[in-house]
Design a protein around this nucleic acid. Structure first.
Length: 515
RNA sequence: GAUUUGGUAGCUCAGUCGGUAGAGCAUCUGACUUUUAAUCAGAGGGUCCCGGGUUCGAACCCCGGCCAAAUCACCA
């Protein structure tokens, strides 16, 4: 292994710490009684000073900067909440003759990135920054690699920002340490989950877990990942959706179930697609898609408030307002709104001519439903910035949705479009087992014609439906896409801790391959 | 999968016409008891992504490959 100059120095420092008789990786708990954030907030809110004992704070964290001025020094440490400045005087932490703890350990052997524990009292510096004056300090853990140190001046200008996306995604742990905005985005993501759980649990719905390894993949149109179980000697698939399992639970008598489902699709990657991603799916018995639209508005408005404190979210150039009610169009209305063409009564030939006129790319294999979907996608979707419900989709695209109660050829389905992208999908679920079997068979014939994303027929799911499923409304929300909006992120990789990357061939694993 | 852009010190980047590899921060040595992009004086640090080619000579030109990003294609 080739070590850089700085890595060699740090390993030497590690040994020097041991030579002082100090364990660089101590086992014992270091009790803290306050966080950096709490210390900073205390300074912002003077009335709270009384409530907190700032004479005896104990805090632990990673050393981010160090400014030594002879016999005293300032450093900034960062804990799980924020950064706080500490002040170390030689004679304060070394009251006796032996000054090694300051002169050697603190001044020389303590590197940026090391973890320390500080005990001391808070005071305000000349320039008014709340600071912990150390009465003792404890070495907690050595860092052997230099962190990319990001500096910010008084005016907020950032220097040497750690920005290389490849390094940031491959070494997210480094990204998280030095880029506070990255950390904030992930805190918001978790807040989204908490917010939805609170909302759905409050309505009495049950959070469940269903199989990720499935003998048949269903519930969506996508290519799966395939694997093999040795003991059963059988093929298993990583789920592309959990829809069919949640519906089985509705059949089983749970009237409201939801799951945060990690799903897997063996398809292209882009800034909107990662091979594994998360959906929340929700099914509620005795409800329809109209009811679900109201629930979605209520829930997503709450998520915006809980994550951002407002319904108005800045996303790129746009401000997106999730305040209820959202705009609603049927798919035909949306197309008419953006193109001034009413296609609702057109037959296949007329649709094809209209698509051509609108410069929508089509091919001869497209049927009526696909043509409508394509016209919508090309002319409307990108223009829908504010959250908007699009309702009533062509039946061909939706083999698991119930036929529309009044309009032939359509299903009771809606999507919400936001910032020009679909963020969620919902329908009145198809619960007629005869119709469901027919729809699966249509998919089978599509599959035989070479559509490798056509759905497969799930006999056991049909068996469940034949026992009877109540009328049910179902919903799936792309959590990653919603997180992108709630955090103003441009790429799905910015809301996934560890986005999928092609492995980088390094010198060391190239050697392993040779061996 | 296609196109474009990029890959140089730990990080962010510069590198002229093809002629000994550069800066800031970080690191090392020294000074400094309220600094905050600390400051001051000095020093060290390179598989220029990989492999071939052209050339007296390649970070730079040519060919092939790897990785990444953006756009497109694909895609509930």
């Amino acid at each position: 292994m080739q070590l850089s100059e700085q890595e060699i120095v740090r390993r030497q420092n590690l040994q020097a710490i041991r030579d002082l008789g100090i364990e660089p990786y101590p086992a014992a708990t270091f009790e803290v009684n306050i966080t950096a954030k709490e210390i900073n907030e205390t300074y912002d809110h003077h009335e709270e000073e009384e409530k907190r004992n700032l004479q005896q704070v104990r805090i632990a964290g990673r050393v981010m900067t160090k400014r030594v001025m002879g016999k005293a020094a300032f450093a900034v440490i960062q804990d799980g909440t924020a950064k706080v400045q500490i002040y170390v005087q030689r004679d304060m932490i070394c009251p006796d003759e032996n000054k090694d703890l300051y002169n050697k350990l603190f001044k020389k052997l303590l590197d940026l990135g090391d973890f320390v524990g500080i005990e001391g009292k808070c005071f305000l510096t000349k320039t008014g920054e709340i600071t912990v004056k150390a009465t003792s300090f404890t070495f907690l853990s050595k860092s052997l690699k230099p962190l990319p140190i990001v500096k910010t001046d008084e005016e907020g200008n950032v220097y040497d920002a750690f920005t290389d996306p490849e390094l940031r995604y491959r070494q997210r742990y480094v990204d998280l340490v030095v880029n506070p905005h990255v950390r904030e985005a992930f805190l918001k993501r978790t807040q989204m989950y908490n917010s939805m759980r609170e909302f759905l649990n409050g309505k009495g719905y049950l959070e469940v877990e269903t199989p990720i390894l499935q003998p048949l993949y269903g519930g969506a149109a996508a290519r799966p990942f395939k694997t093999h179980h040795n003991t059963l000697d059988m093929t298993l698939y990583l789920r592309i959706a959990n829809e069919l399992y949640l519906k089985r639970l509705i059949v089983g008598g749970f009237d409201g179930v939801y799951e945060f489902s990690k799903d897997f699709r063996n398809e292209g990657m882009s800034r909107f697609h990662n091979p594994e991603f998360t959906q929340i799916e929700l099914y509620v018995a005795y409800k329809d898609y109209e009811w679900m639209m109201n629930l979605v508005e209520e829930m997503v408005e709450k998520v915006a408030l809980d994550t951002n404190g407002t319904t108005k979210i800045q996303v790129g150039e746009n401000v997106i307002d999730f305040k209820r009610p959202w705009k609603r169009y049927t798919m035909f209305e949306a197309i008419e709104h953006f193109t001034s063409i009413d296609i609702s009564q057109m037959d296949e030939d007329e649709l094809r001519a209209t698509a051509k006129k609108l410069h929508v790319p089509i091919d001869p294999s497209m049927g009526k439903g696909k043509l409508i979907d394509e016209i919508f996608g090309e002319t409307c979707e990108a223009k829908l910035i504010q959250p908007t419900f699009i309702t009533d989709y062509p039946i061909e695209m939706s083999p698991l949705a119930k036929k529309h109660r009044t309009v032939p050829g359509l299903v009771e389905r809606f999507e919400a479009i936001c910032n020009g992208k679909e963020i969620l999908n919902s329908f009145s679920e198809l619960n007629d087992p005869i119709d469901q079997r027919a729809r699966f068979e249509e998919q089978l014939s599509l599959g035989k014609r070479g559509d490798d994303e056509a759905m497969v027929l799930d006999e056991d799911f049909l068996n469940a439906l034949e026992y009877g499923m109540p009328p049910t409304a179902g919903l799936g929300i792309g959590m990653d896409r919603l997180a992108m909006i709630m955090t103003n992120s441009n790429s799905i990789q910015d809301v996934l801790f560890f986005p999928q990357m092609r492995p980088k061939v390094t010198a060391s694993n190239a050697e392993e391959e040779e061996e």
